[in-house]
Amino acid sequence: MSDWLDLAALWRVLVASLVAGAGLAAAFSLALVGFSSGRVIGRVGAGLCLVVVAAGVVLGLYVMLRK
């Protein structure tokens, strides 16, 4: 089976995609919740979420450019 399909790579792709795709989308959504809360703690949390999203984007660009 491994000759036909690189299962190890496939699993890595799936896990990384779920973390980066669904995870970062969720983090961005949490940032919107924080910003709309009107509270300082909410805005701080939102800022942290956006930092996580920005880090994910930078990591993505790094991965793409080092090919």
Partner: peptide
Amino acid sequence: SSSAAVIFSSS
């Protein structure tokens, strides 16, 4: 977001 994540991960 999903597209970007899957493309980058697969690459």
